[in-house]
């Protein structure tokens, strides 16, 4: 499929005098799982925040599904930030009602199903949940939407390996096949098996964007190894 879902043209974002993204050009197609890889401070979160409209670009163009970032793109983007973003007084059922109210692509049955696998009852309060459960419930909400673009910012950082597997499986089994998933992370070995493509970000520049198969073929090594080479310190 050659449908272009995300398109960035000379996209630049600077904070005061720090350049977080430097003149980025990229086109990402539909129906893929893309890894947004790079060390801390390379611009991963900035790119994701620009896509979901939490930041405005300093210069350049950014479109999702052919539209500038705005309410139309927000309604087709499902975003999981790297922190708790739901008020803790919510109950699980309030959360589902909230998502159903604002996103027409939210599948409530799917959400109920996912929560019951997690052992969460609709009347459970978010406040009483453990950190890991909170992260899982957020992921369940995000993945219960039939979105065109899923943006997952560090979804597996800070959880144990079993939870990591659960999260990756949830993403794999629930995402809308015509949509694209962008996962930002620096824990590459864990997610390498699910990726179709990989974007390598360094100091706000895209140093490489290729399919995982090509990387393996051309370099003869895994994405994880390539990452360690590109971002090696003091070499």
């Amino acid at each position: 499929m050659n449908n272009i879902l995300v398109s960035a043209r000379s996209l630049t974002k600077t904070y005061q005098n720090i350049t977080a993204l430097n003149n980025i050009n990229i086109e990402i197609g539909s129906g893929k799982i893309v890894g947004l890889l790079g060390p801390n401070g390379s611009g991963k979160t900035t790119f994701i925040k620009l896509l979901c409209g939490l930041l405005q670009p300093t210069s350049g163009m950014l479109t999702v599904d052919g539209k500038n970032i705005g309410t139309q793109t927000k309604s087709v983007i499902s975003y999981l930030p790297d922190r708790m973003f739901i008020a803790d007084w919510f109950k699980a059922c309030d959360l589902m009602e909230f998502f159903a109210d604002f996103y027409s692509d939210f599948d409530k049955n799917k959400a109920v199903e996912m929560l019951s696998t997690l052992g969460i009852a609709p009347n459970d309060k978010i406040k009483t949940m453990s950190k890991g459960t909170k992260e899982k419930i957020q992921l369940a909400m995000i993945m219960s939407r039939k979105a065109k673009l899923y943006l997952l910012d560090e979804p597996i950082a800070g959880v144990d390996p079993a939870a990591r597997d659960f999260i990756l499986n949830t993403i794999l089994t629930n995402y809308n096949e015509e949509g694209t998933v962008i996962i930002s992370t620096h824990l590459i070995s864990d997610i390498e098996r699910v990726l179709d493509e990989a974007i390598f970000l360094q100091n706000g520049n895209i140093v490489r964007y290729d399919t995982v198969d090509n990387i393996r073929e051309q370099e003869g090594k895994s994405v994880d190894q390539l990452f360690r080479e590109i971002f090696a310190y003091g070499m």
């Binding site: 979901c52 409209g53 939490l54 309410t71 139309q72 927000k74 309604s75 983007i77 975003y79 930030p81 922190r83 708790m84 973003f85 739901i86 008020a87 604002f102 996103y103």
Partner: peptide
């Protein structure tokens, strides 16, 4: 707290202006 802290991540990514 509802707009300028963590909850803002939810509110400003809703399809509302």
């Amino acid at each position: 707290k509802g707009l300028l802290c963590d909850e803002g991540y939810l509110m400003f990514t809703l399809p509302v202006k």
